[in-house]
Design a protein around this nucleic acid. Structure first.
Length: 570
RNA sequence: CGGAACGUAGCGCAGCGUGGUCAGCGCGCCGGCUUCGGGAGCCGGGGGUCGCAGGUUCGAAUCCUGCCGUUCCGACCA
């Protein structure tokens, strides 16, 4: 490719509406342009990178016996009604009608359609199967942001496994896990697989693949000394066993005028430090007001409530609802003596005594509370958000919290989709059994952005050779100088013959402009050809990553760079 | 969905308070000359229904109303 003929619209200034580094650099480097909120056009450079990511994923999917499909992006509503998602998925699912007034939708994922195709399977002898495709998804996200990191329309590689039983699913799940680790390695990212919440749509186990980034939206807890890592949505930790000072006798009322918060109470009474308090939160769970108790210095992780109760219909109760149910306002709530409402408590409270909590009467608390004796806990449920510095649940290490981007996610689905869609086979005994499914996704654009988040400097993007839109650029310092052009053309031909993705910068621009563009775009190797070097028979080879400069004889330049590029590919 | 900000040339912005040569600047773009190893200089150009629609006014980028769009914080995110 000749740069003078290429459409590579680089910009000097950051786009005004970009915040994330990857967003700024991908726009400035001429990789993407926004069409509307959460929707981007891939320009030639962006398309080249996306294709390389796609090919790496395809390789690895094929390596675990995946078979590539291509399913439609517009689906009949009917199929989604069978699994319930037509009605259950709120907001992000775009529905519309065709001219015959048939309900249609834009695919936000493809479980239904793959399961529908899989209903053609009839015998356990045909299993296992592993199917995948690269296809556009549309999710009408309430808040797209950060360029390619969170969009509404995007291409995802999603694969689906089909097995006769859980044991088979385990195998496919583990194969995917290993394949994903290889994929992210080849994309140049150090990935952290973490245990994740599987959401409410079926599924027993899920692993998210996270990469550290300040632009990320997820927080994970990582152990300093073992391989424990989990999304904060389900991370756990060991809480040191508390030894409560003994309290003789019954609970005692304490007047606490105008005290509404844990901190105020702790400040007011020396016996009421936050870890001695019981925080009582009122949630509406499936329409039922429910008390959720955690230690005063702990916070509730709402996803744990959702997972624990198995419903997404959870929200904090309104003050009026609380007043009606408990006779007091938030700030004075407690579960002592509460038997008419479900009470859920975090295990960190188990066995505690001599605690203090709200009296369900404004301006009053009670002290001397023994959880086992005084509170009718209906269910112990880990609902607590882990915090930085707590002890690892698996070893003696300490947990650190890290902000991350989710770049892949694998799920065990079970029979959630196969049952309603009739995807079943006969087993060896001639009995009909629903196919056990798994689903596994990687977003192409988000991965492109994640790589940029992790690999850039002040000058621009630093692509790994595996993803670079061009692996080498030949920068002709002075195109009017005929020996320079001739030498550059010679190297160009040599690299093309060696199968290197090369672009020759033959623009009539000043050298500084070309250098800056090459760095912004992030091409791994730059060969600078100019009169100064040619006078000595050499050209310069600059490595984008690290900036090493090598002076190479003109005749050897193409072979030198071809060899460097080839050894870096994997 | 709650809160906030913004919308003027391809990009980045000023101008709106106190309506009237306010249609402007920088970069980019086109032509010319000089330059040419880190985002050149000079000269000359092209380019905008001031997001859209109403309204107020003799007169609206500027004031009022409505709408649309984009971004940020939060909620949400199979």
């Amino acid at each position: 490719m000749r740069w003078s003929q290429a459409f590579i619209p680089t910009l000097r200034d950051d786009p005004a509406d970009a915040e994330a580094v990857s967003h700024k650099l991908l726009v400035r480097g001429g990789f993407i342009r926004q069409l509307m909120a959460g929707s981007y056009s891939l320009l030639p450079l962006g398309k080249r990178v996306a294709d390389k990511i796609t090919q790496i994923i395809r390789d690895e999917m094929n390596a675990i016996d995946g078979q590539e499909f291509e399913l439609p992006v517009v689906h009949p509503g009917e199929i989604w009604k069978k699994t319930g998602r037509w009605d259950n998925v709120e907001g992000i699912l775009v529905k519309f009608k065709d001219r015959k007034d048939t309900d249609l939708l834009l695919a936000m994922t493809h479980e239904e359609i793959f399961a529908f195709v899989a209903s053609e399977l009839s015998s356990y002898k045909q299993l296992p199967q592993m199917w995948y495709h690269f296809q556009t998804k549309f999710r009408d996200e309430a808040r797209p942001k950060s360029g390619l990191l969170r969009v509404r329309e995007f291409v995802m590689k999603d694969s689906y496994s089909f097995d006769i039983d859980e044991a088979g699913l385990d195998v496919q799940f583990q194969r995917h896990r290993a394949a994903y680790v290889r994929i992210f390695e080849r994309l140049g990212m150090s990935v952290i697989p973490v245990a994740a919440s599987s959401g409410s749509m079926g599924g027993s186990e899920s692993i998210e693949f996270m990469v550290e980034s300040s632009a990320g939206e997820d927080i994970i807890a990582v152990c300093s000394s073992c391989d424990y890592a989990a999304n904060l949505e389900r991370a756990t930790s060991r809480v040191p066993v508390a030894t409560d000072e003994p309290w003789e006798g019954d609970i005692e009322r304490v007047a606490t005028p105008d005290i509404r918060t844990i901190a105020q109470l702790a400040a007011a009474f020396e016996f009421a430090s936050a870890d001695r308090q019981i925080k009582s939160l009122a949630y509406i769970v499936d329409g039922q007001l429910t008390l959720v108790l955690v230690r005063g210095d702990h916070d509730v992780q709402e996803q744990k409530l959702i997972d624990g109760f198995g419903t997404e219909h959870i929200r904090p109760a309104h003050p009026e609802e609380i007043q009606e149910a408990l006779g007091a306002m938030p700030g004075s709530l407690g579960a002592v003596g509460v038997t008419h409402l479900p009470v859920v408590a975090d295990p960190a409270l188990e066995g505690r005594s001599n605690m203090i909590t709200g009296a369900n009467e404004d301006d009053w608390h009670v002290r001397g509370v023994d959880i086992g004796r005084d509170i009718a806990v209906g269910r112990w449920l880990d609902v607590r958000a882990v915090t930085e510095g707590e002890r690892c649940p698996d070893c003696d290490g300490v947990l650190a919290l890290e902000r991350t981007i989710e770049i892949g996610h694998i799920f065990k689905l079970g029979t959630y989709y196969s049952v309603p869609l009739g995807a079943s086979v006969l087993d060896a005994d001639g009995k009909e059994k629903p196919i056990v499914m798994g689903s596994y996704g990687i977003g192409i654009g988000r991965n492109m952005a994640a790589v940029v988040e992790n690999s850039h400097d002040e000058s621009g993007i630093v692509w790994p050779v595996n993803l670079a839109p061009y692996e080498a650029v030949i920068t002709v310092v002075k195109i009017a100088d005929e020996p320079s052009m001739a030498a550059a053309e010679e190297i160009y031909r040599g690299l093309l013959e060696a199968g290197i993705d090369v672009i020759i910068d033959d623009r009539n621009e000043r050298p500084g402009v070309k250098f800056a563009d090459a760095e912004l775009v992030g091409i791994p190797y730059r060969i600078t050809v100019g009169p100064r070097g040619l006078a000595e028979g050499i050209v310069e080879v600059v490595r984008r990553s690290g900036g090493d400069v090598a002076r190479i004889a003109l005749e050897e330049a193409a072979a030198h760079v071809a060899s460097a590029v080839t050894t870096e590919r994997f």
